[in-house]
Amino acid sequence: MSDRTGTRADVVVRPMDAADADEVLAIYQAGLDGGDASFEVTAPAWPDFDRTRLAGHRYVAADTVTGRVLGWIAASPVSRRHVYRGVVENSLYVHPDAQGRGVGRVLLDTFIRSTEAAEIWTIQSGIFPENADSLRLHERAGFRVVGTRERIGRHHGRWRDVVLIERRSPAVS
């Protein structure tokens, strides 16, 4: 199997590994600094990031010319309970300079294929309603809005809502 799983000529999507740590965490921090990506305010150290993401469902999108990481996607388990073994939560971050170039979509498409091959039947995510680009991207990839969790947490001193979305795989029954 080729590492090239993306569908853009200028971007290669490949499994994330420890050599990507600095770029992945810098992109993560840039997203956090933007204020509408997560309740988190500081990207974790690599060992914590590595420990909390499923190894089989972590990808980076890299520029085919420079090799620079443009974005990443990863899965975290929703629960350790056996009944939820086919449910994951995704995180998707694109470098600010690469946004609007289709990097998020190629990452999400690769991720969906990966999870379906592993018989994961539901991908879910919580997105701030202000992050309209991420909501649109996920909707175009087959996610639906489950509902809004109002005032679910405080972020930078104010209450924030989170839109809960999910994608049920039509390929995994």
Rank of each mutant, 00 (worst) to 15 (best):
D3W: 06
A55K: 08
A75S: 13
R168L: 15
T66G: 03
V162K: 09
L137P: 04
V65C: 10
H156C: 14
Y84K: 05
V88P: 07
V24T: 10
S114Q: 06
W46V: 00
T110D: 14
R105T: 15
A37L: 02
A18S: 09
Q99D: 05
V103P: 08
S134P: 13
P129S: 04
R53Q: 13
V145E: 15
G147K: 00
A37I: 05
L32Y: 00
A30V: 03
H155Y: 03
R85F: 14
R158V: 15
R158Q: 15
L25R: 02
R144L: 14
R158H: 11
G6R: 01
I165V: 15
A18W: 00
L92T: 04
H156N: 13
F111N: 07
Q99P: 11
D36M: 12
E40D: 06
H95Y: 06
G104D: 12
T64P: 10
S134Y: 04
R80I: 09
G153P: 02
M16A: 09
A117H: 02
E116F: 01
R80M: 13
P47L: 01
G35K: 07
S173P: 15
P96I: 05
L54K: 00
T110S: 14
V106E: 14
T52R: 06
I127S: 05
I127A: 07
T122A: 11
D109C: 10
R68P: 09
R149E: 15
A61C: 01
A62L: 07
L108E: 15
T115F: 03
S173C: 12
A21T: 01
G6L: 01
G104W: 09
E166K: 00
R81K: 04
A43L: 00
V83M: 12
Y28I: 10
V88L: 14
R68F: 08
M16F: 12
R158A: 14
P129M: 06
Q99K: 03
A18D: 03
A30G: 13
A75I: 07
R80N: 11
A75N: 09
Y59L: 06
D161M: 04
Q124A: 07
V78N: 13
L108D: 11
D22N: 08
A37V: 08
W159C: 03
L92A: 06
A62G: 05
V163T: 04
A9L: 13
P170R: 04
H82F: 14
R149P: 07
W72Q: 13
A26T: 05
W121R: 10
I27A: 02
R14C: 09
G56M: 06
A74D: 13
E166I: 07
